[in-house]
Simulated scan of single mutants.
Amino acid sequence: MQRFLDSAQELIVEKGTTDFTVQEVVDRSKQSLRSFYQHFDGKHELLLALFEDALSMGAAKVREAAATESDPLQRLRIAVETLYEQSHPSPGVQRPLFNDFALQLLVKHPEQVATAHIPLLTVFTEIIEQAAEAGLVAGGKPRRQAALVMQTVMFASQAHGVPADSHAHPVTSEEVWQFCLGGISGVPATAGRSASA
């Protein structure tokens, strides 16, 4: 199975697109077509496995980065900033698995997108629960709060077509963190600044 995943990933990197055939993956993996269909129903399932794997690795990196801090609020800040950097498009770097496939997946199979994001949602939920237990953020619905924070961070990292102000300066990870912390009221944001200083 891993050979098929590795071969598909290599093709994505080489072509800069998810536009490849199952036969190309099979040829590159040096395995049989029969073997491919023993593991995957088709190309969609192969791409979904790659997408889920990439999100799981991303969640592990967020957890690892956040673990460097003992303060729960600082762990949350690092988690937000790490996710922002992961989601932010790098100049000249194509990410067709996220830009092309994920968009199609979101439109046609939103339940699969939700399932793929569970590892990341779990990490953010745990960190928010810890911050709530310490009295640093409002408690209540940590999983729902985690989903809202993740959606805010990931959308903000991709929203280059929306000017942040009249000078069209791009939004920074620090601005996203301050917004997640204080929302539009801005009240807790001062506490977040002093904690990160």
Rank of each mutant, 00 (worst) to 15 (best):
V187G: 09
S35I: 00
E24M: 06
A132G: 14
D41Q: 09
L83Q: 06
P142N: 15
R143M: 12
G139V: 00
T122H: 15
S29L: 06
S173H: 04
F98K: 02
S56I: 03
T82R: 08
P188G: 09
L121W: 08
T190Y: 07
R3Y: 05
E133M: 13
V80E: 01
E126K: 15
L83T: 07
P72I: 08
S7E: 02
H88Q: 09
A134Y: 14
S90G: 05
I127H: 12
L11I: 12
L136V: 09
L50E: 02
G42C: 02
S70G: 07
L83K: 01
E133W: 06
L97G: 07
E69Q: 12
P142Q: 14
G135Q: 13
A189Y: 03
H44E: 05
V176F: 07
H117F: 13
T21L: 08
Q23V: 07
C180A: 14
F179E: 00
P110I: 04
A138M: 14
G186Y: 11
T152R: 04
A65V: 05
F20T: 08
S196A: 15
A8N: 04
G16W: 10
A195Y: 09
T190A: 13
R143F: 10
H88S: 05
S70N: 13
V137S: 14
E174G: 04
E111W: 06
Y84C: 01
A195D: 09
R75F: 05
F4K: 09
L97H: 06
A164L: 12
Q9D: 12
R3T: 06
L11Y: 11
I128Q: 15
L46T: 02
V26T: 02
E52D: 04
M150D: 04
H44C: 00
A49I: 00
Q23L: 10
R28D: 03
W177I: 02
K108F: 03
